[in-house]
Computed example of a mutant assay.
Amino acid sequence: MQGPKSSGQETGRPSATGGIHHGRTHDEVEQELLELRALIESTVVKHRRRLSRDALVRELGREEVVPAIESLVESAACALDVALSTDAEVSRGTYAALRTTLETRGGSLRARLLCDPAAVDRKFARQVTLAGHHWEVRMTPMPPLCALIVDGSATVVSVGPPGASRASLIRAATVLQAVRNLYSNVWSNATVLTERIHFGDRDRTDTVRLVLQRLRDGVTDEVAARELGFSVRTYRRYVAEIMTLLGAESRFQAGVYAAALGLLPPSGD
């Protein structure tokens, strides 16, 4: 499996916090995920006969995934990297383990949580921010991948949609490196949830929320501009600035991000 492209070969774009993200297309991430899954499967075959507790790769049944994640979180000595996609059961179990660890050992660990918008727990993100430890939560559309990397030496990986995923507990160095590479690539291009996004003064913030509501509701530029008393050109400038601040690549994505960040009330309110 080939390693990730050098960041110097990628096109940068502004992040939600003012830095530069090295963008990767969704298709590139999906392809890397397919390669990772193939690598895991080939490694499973090589180590299938090693069924001891210390096996380099061990397949997990559905009922074993959350207990394995809980055990790894508890065993972490210095670092946790977590990725949550759309599997609600795995997300619930992982959040529960992370909350316990944040409360009991948060100051002694560095933790990164990468979430699909559907897997974001805003209450947990606020807890992380208030705790003031070396924990960070980011959000981006995720491929069907749930993963937990502990101290860079062990990982639980579940690849595939809920109900059709295949999970493994992995200590094989080759697969671990592939998982770390994929995680780093997606992480660098994600929106930070544990830092406040500043839109400016109160009036501007109120205006941004009104624009976000129109984006979420799918209102055309012309109708939205007329409702807000803007020219279409001014409205579109607001939209472009909002997308940059949120790290969104499309208007729809900006609306999803805004809802996950708590910038908008639930639809229908």
Rank of each mutant, 00 (worst) to 15 (best):
Q2K: 15
G3K: 09
S7F: 10
G8Y: 07
Q9T: 12
E10V: 10
R13L: 07
H22I: 07
H22D: 06
E32Q: 10
E32M: 14
I40Q: 00
E41I: 03
S42E: 14
R48L: 10
R50A: 14
R50P: 00
R50S: 13
L51C: 04
L60S: 04
G61C: 05
E63T: 14
E64I: 04
I69K: 01
S71P: 00
E74C: 02
C78K: 11
L80M: 09
D81T: 03
R92A: 15
T94M: 04
A96W: 06
A97V: 01
A97S: 13
T100E: 12
R110F: 11
C115F: 07
A118W: 00
A119R: 02
D121R: 07
F124C: 14
R126L: 09
Q127G: 08
W135V: 04
M142T: 04
L148P: 01
G152Q: 04
A154M: 12
T155L: 07
V157W: 00
V157I: 13
R166W: 04
A167I: 05
S168N: 08
T174H: 15
N181Q: 13
N181G: 06
T194E: 02
R196I: 11
R196L: 14
F199W: 12
G200L: 10
D201Q: 12
R209Q: 11
R209K: 15
L210C: 12
V211W: 01
V211L: 04
D221L: 06
E222C: 05
R226C: 02
L228A: 06
L228F: 07
V232R: 14
R237K: 10
A248Q: 01
R251E: 13
R251L: 05
R251D: 06
V256M: 08
Y257A: 10
Y257T: 08
L263A: 03
L263R: 00
L264R: 12
P266Q: 09
